[in-house]
């Protein structure tokens, strides 16, 4: 049984359909990525799964349970955490306060302290900056913090919305190293990226979205070697 299963999801804003019936699955312990151009519906997919937007049709299953009608709060509690696009750390709170906000719904105080130490172990840079305001961190550090904050909810699935957006190439490398680290700790990651090349290299399985539909899917290697993908997303021309 897959960890997350989405079937025939339709979402519309006003009269416009952003998602026109998409289905996909995320297996436990894998990195799964959705790639596609601007406006393909990638972010809408994430927002619908996390309950910020409600779908018109279709169901979402998490660990076999139907979570389509859950509110955001309950979805976070079931174990889905989101790292929002543009990082969105709480700029006027300290790094430590940001992490504590991540644990907001949890009641297990002792374990929370352990988890903070665990996040600090993963990202020693955050520990150094524990008392600094999150707004003063660099872009890469903010992304680490956004991931750390999401981990504080003790999720089974982390969804990341364009984590490499607006970051320097070297920092992007760091980000993908972080994603790999997450996978190594047994976390399942659903990743949305415009940086198709990096995403396809990092992922176990990938779906390609175009204007509200899923048009292709396959393992990272399969898609990397597909000519259609190379032409559309990787900037390699098939004509010689």
């Amino acid at each position: 049984m897959s960890l997350l299963k989405v079937t025939d999801l339709v979402v519309s804003y006003g009269g416009i359909e952003a998602l026109k019936g998409i289905s996909f699955e995320v297996e436990q312990g894998q990195i799964v990525t959705l790639i596609g151009a601007n406006g393909a519906g990638k972010s809408t997919t994430l927002r619908t799964i996390s309950g910020l937007v409600k779908g018109r049709e279709g169901r979402i299953y998490f660990e076999g349970r139907d979570i389509t009608d859950y509110g955001t709060q309950k979805i976070v509690e079931t174990g889905i955490a989101m790292v929002p696009e543009g990082r969105r750390v709480f700029a006027n709170l300290t790094v430590l306060e940001n992490l504590r906000i991540g644990a907001y719904l949890r009641k297990d105080r002792d374990v929370i302290e352990e988890d903070i130490q665990y996040v600090y172990e993963l990202f020693p840079r955050l520990k150094e900056r524990s008392w600094q305001l999150a707004g003063t961190l660099s872009g890469g550090e903010q992304q680490m913090l956004a991931v750390g904050r999401a981990m504080m909810t003790r999720p089974k699935l982390i969804m990341m919305d364009e984590p490499s957006l607006g970051l320097a190439p070297l920092v992007v490398k760091d980000i993908f190293r972080i994603i790999q680290t997450l996978k190594d700790t047994g976390m399942t990651v659903l990743l949305i990226e415009q940086n198709a090349n990096a995403a396809l290299h990092a992922c176990d399985y990938a779906y390609v979205m175009e204007t509200g539909r899923i048009t292709m899917s396959g393992t990272g290697e399969e898609l990397l070697s597909s000519e259609a993908i190379q032409e559309a997303y990787l900037g390699k021309s098939s004509k010689k």
Binding site: S50, Q73, V89, E97, I101, Y104, T153
Partner: peptide
């Protein structure tokens, strides 16, 4: 308190606060 932190989180970024499960 924890509530105060949640208030400040809402002030800084409503969307992120909601994504963290703050009602």
């Amino acid at each position: 308190s924890t509530y105060g932190r949640a208030f400040k989180a809402i002030r800084d970024d409503e969307v992120a606060a909601e994504a963290m499960g703050i009602n």
